[in-house]
Every structure is written in C-alpha cells, then in structure tokens.
Simulated scan of single mutants.
Amino acid sequence: MTKEFAGKVALVTGGGSGIGAACARQLAEEGARVVVADMNLAGAQAVVDTILAAGGTASARQVDVSDPQAVKAMVEFAAETYGGLDCAVNNAGIGGPLKPIAEYEIDEWQHVIAVNQNSVFYCMKYEIEVMLRQAKGSIVNMSSILGTNAIANAPAYVAAKHALVGMTKSAAIAYSASGVRVNAVGPGYIRTPLVESSLDEESISGLVGLHPIGRLGTSEEVANLTLFLLSDRASFITGSYHLVDGGYAAQ
C-alpha cells in the first residue's frame, strides 16, 4: 500500500516536542522525508532518532525562527538535502507573559510577536519561493482557538495568532492559482509537555472544563487534521482556518 506522503519533503518548525513532534512523526510514517526544526536541537534530534528507528527519513535542524536569515538557511537546507519542499508546518511558538496590556513590557511584546508572528511571515516567504519553482506545495500555519477568540492577559499571543489567520488567507489568495495551498489550524488546549510541566493538575482541570468534550486534546489529534490539510485529499481547501478544539469555540 502506497504511503500518502511517499516521495515528498516536509519541514516542521517547533518539531522537537508536542504538536510539532507529532506532525513530524506522522509525516515520516506516511513516507515523507522530514526536516525537524527547533530551537532545542536535542529535542529535534530525539524526534529524528525515533523516526530513523522506525525506518523513516529525517534530519534535525536548530533554528531561531525569529531570525529571518536562520529561517532562510533552514528552508534552503531542506530543499538542498532532499531536493525540494512539498509540505511545511509552521508550528514554532511561545506563550509569553500573562499580564494585561498596561503591564506588558515593550520587549516582552516584541519577543512574542517576533517568535509567533514574524517567524511565520519569514517561513512562508522562503517556503513559497521553493514551492513556486515546483508549481506545487502545501503549508499549514499553527494558529490557535485564540486566532479568533481571546482571553484576558495574553495580548501579544492573541494578536499574533489572529495575525496568522489573516496571513494565511492573504497568502492563499495570492498563490492558490500557482499550485500552493495555505491553511491554518486552531488547536484548543492540548495536553503537551509544556502544559504538563508549567501547570498543576488543578489548573489543568480548569482548562478541561472549558472544553465541552470533557478533556484536553492530544498532539496526535492536531497532527491528524494537519496532515489531512497537507495532503492531496484536501486539494480544494485553501485559505481556511480549521479548529480542533473539543467544542471550545462553539460555546
């Protein structure tokens, strides 16, 4: 049986843990040659080692996605190592401080915007350049339920995730006729290592209560949707924003 991404090249940022790691592993399982990029090289390499042990093909790349030249080099590495770029998951991001706008420091704002918003512009710019040469490609930008909703005390994160949805739509309109599709995914609260390490069980239980389905999501569930959007099965889907949130936004 032919694997869905056989012969394709994929790039995943923030691929060293959580949602990014799940996307990288699933892409490799389906036959893609995957570049796993992360600020944490050890985390990226651990994911690559898992992929290699399962018989897949992958490489680790350390990258600071807030640095446009580092992003350019990352994309060039993927294209030169594997001969092109068919799929990209722009997933890297940070949470940032939890405080209202009047208490937010300027450097805190700039850092969150640099990592969560500007980085996606850099990634798309260089990914699309490669994809246009091939006249095909598919990109998924990892937004959030906070790409349309909001919470108090996370102004930079909410602003960046809203911006990702807008950039996704703009890029999709510009490049769909050239064979490049761009979509966004909006996860609800997902049980990732970051959530489990930064919150106690009482806080996690509070998050669970926000989801009508009665639990947090898993990284694999977000990856399932992401791979569908990257695949040829989603060939008529572009410029859209898809929730995987256990009913959070339906309330």
Rank of each mutant, 00 (worst) to 15 (best):
K3V: 15
A6P: 02
G7W: 12
K8H: 15
K8G: 11
K8N: 12
V9Q: 12
V9D: 06
V9P: 06
V9N: 06
A10S: 11
A10I: 08
L11I: 13
T13D: 10
G15D: 01
G18H: 00
G18E: 08
C23I: 09
Q26S: 14
L27Y: 09
A28F: 02
E29F: 11
E29D: 14
E30C: 14
G31H: 12
G31T: 04
A32G: 05
A32E: 00
V34Q: 02
V34K: 00
V36A: 00
V36Y: 00
A37G: 06
A42F: 08
A42R: 10
A44C: 01
A46R: 08
A46E: 11
L52R: 15
L52K: 13
A53M: 12
G56N: 13
A58E: 02
S59A: 07
A60C: 00
A60D: 04
R61M: 12
R61G: 02
V63N: 02
V65G: 12
V65R: 02
S66A: 14
D67M: 06
D67K: 05
Q69V: 04
A70F: 06
A70D: 10
A73T: 03
M74T: 02
A78D: 12
A79K: 10
T81Y: 03
D86A: 11
N91V: 03
G93A: 08
I94M: 05
G95N: 09
P97L: 07
L98G: 03
K99T: 05
I101V: 13
A102S: 06
E103L: 13
E108P: 03
E108H: 07
Q110N: 13
V115Q: 01
V115D: 03
N116R: 04
Q117N: 05
N118Q: 14
V120W: 04
C123Y: 04
M124R: 00
Y126F: 15
E129S: 11
V130Q: 11
R133N: 15
R133L: 15
Q134A: 14
Q134S: 08
A135M: 13
K136S: 09
I139V: 11
V140D: 05
N141L: 12
N141F: 12
M142E: 04
G147F: 03
G147P: 01
G147R: 09
A156S: 09
Y157L: 09
A159Q: 07
A160G: 10
A160H: 07
A160K: 03
K161Q: 12
K161Y: 02
A163L: 03
A163R: 01
V165L: 09
V165R: 01
S176M: 01
S178D: 15
G179D: 06
R181S: 10
V182N: 02
V182F: 07
V182G: 07
A184V: 13
P187M: 08
Y189F: 14
I190F: 12
I190Y: 01
P193Y: 05
L194P: 11
V195L: 15
V195K: 11
E196G: 12
E202H: 10
S203Q: 15
G206P: 06
L207W: 08
H211T: 07
G217N: 11
T218V: 06
T226I: 03
T226A: 14
F228G: 06
S231M: 07
S231F: 07
D232W: 10
I237G: 01
G239Y: 04
S240C: 03
H242W: 13
V244W: 11
A250E: 07
